[in-house]
Design a binder for these strands. Structure first.
Lengths: 246, 246
DNA sequence: CGACAATTTGATCTGTCTCAACTATGGTGG
DNA sequence: CCACCATAGTTGAGACAGATCAAATTGTCG
């Protein structure tokens, strides 16, 4: 499983899902010093309150940002896949206002703020790319507010599936057939503001309706258009350079 | 009511709630060309899908970002008060992924992207300030996801009141006694993912508990600490330079 | 094979929604 | 200055989506 990963390549691929780079930019990314670490399943990568001096890149596995509210209830704020930089905001915001956890065993690289700032000065396109990435995060948060605030369970869950599928596809983490989402139903609940039990029933409904086919954590979407429609999903908010057609 | 407003002063004050400026920065802000316009209550300032070439500053009144989901249900994503720049992300994201509407008659100034980019090059602190502001927006969105996803009605509503109060206070829009929130219960519902009727009952409960005193749209908070506690509110996520004590 | 985690099922409860009416409030024009 | 109208707030009753609790089943991995 711990195949040799090319950290810089993963990061480059991610950045190029939303910003066009030239060869000089790619070379500059390759020069970024990265410290790599393996994080075990259900371990935190950082916790709320931390003052950070580096940003991280998910190289393999799945991570999530989350908050714990009164009563110990958890709200997942976003999912992150190989290539994502889930804490770019730490470049300008001193303290973490949320935590980041690994939902599966994950490989994570760390790049110092200094190195990122330096490459941003040398290569303004990259500075813009990082800013853009942070703003796209914000856009996704907005969509999640609408998802959790105003959609019913079926819409919420299928919307989340659409988003994960399309983002993973853009990152090259899916074949057209299937995609692996190593996320438990409990975590799906914490992301959509629903209980685990209700997620289970909602997933069953989606399966019965032929919208999702699941075998364990490997899912496939037989009819993208129909899933999109029941999910009230449109990919605009991801600001991808190459969204899925249809 | 349309008192003479100093647009540049309003903007400066807002920026200084989260970034320290020096005199040169303030002078640079004063040099920004602004086009001012009055927007009537319940009119949109921009709509989802727009390609924007300028950013706006709310100079008076209250605005909100929102999305319409399937079935015409509205989700409000954020509230904005005098001084706020609610569309900074348009500097780097081509299309608006949501709309901005005026909840009361409002005065709005527009600054071209070009002018903002120019002042950001001349004054790097200001470029950072704008970026920081956009990231703080993101942080607020995260808190809203948690609010809507994992808090019960009383917590949700009181949390929103805490946030509005503290942000308005930082902007100099409150006395210690009272603050005016020209937001209807319907809008409160669209912001918290609750129905208007339930907002009404929740507000009554808050009043009965002595947590909020309201006369029309003017509210006061007799016991800040107690409201904070029932709201599960902590101001960290606002990343203010001077948060409220306690 | 054993043990622990994740999924599934059933039964019951409840927070919030919906619908529908009624009442205050504030602004407007006569 | 008042009558009117629209908008916002309030109340009650009933319905329902989703929560909770508890237990059984299935999966997974050492």
């Amino acid at each position: 499983m711990p195949l040799p990963i090319d950290p810089h390549h993963k990061l480059t691929r991610q950045i190029e899902t939303i910003t066009r780079l030239d060869e000089g930019d790619r070379i500059a990314i390759r020069g970024l010093p990265m410290r790599t670490r393996v994080v075990e399943e259900n371990r935190d990568i950082f916790r709320e309150g931390l003052r950070s001096t580096e940003c991280c890149v998910i190289l393999s596995g799945v991570a999530c940002r989350y908050k714990i509210v009164a009563g110990g209830r958890r709200q997942i704020l976003s999912f992150h896949f190989a290539g994502d930089m889930p804490d770019l905001q730490s470049l300008l915001l001193e303290r973490m206002d949320h935590s980041l956890g690994a939902l599966s065993r994950a490989t994570v690289a760390f790049i110092s703020h200094d190195a990122l700032r330096a490459v941003g000065i040398e290569r303004p396109t990259l500075a813009t790319a990082f800013n853009r990435q942070a703003l796209v995060d914000g856009s996704i948060f907005r969509e999640w507010i609408a998802n959790v605030g105003r959609r019913v369970a079926t819409e919420r869950v299928s919307h989340l599936i659409c988003e994960c599928y399309e983002r993973m596809r853009a990152l090259g983490l899916t074949t057209t057939e299937r995609f692996e989402l190593p996320i438990t139903q409990n975590e799906l609940g914490d992301a959509t503001g629903l209980s685990t039990v209700h997620i289970n029933r909602t997933m069953q409904a989606l399966r019965k309706a032929g919208l999702v086919v699941s075998q364990g954590k490997v899912h496939s979407i037989p009819d993208w258009r129909r899933l999109r429609e029941t999910a009230d999903y449109s990919p605009d908010y991801l600001h991808l350079l190459a969204p899925l057609p249809g």
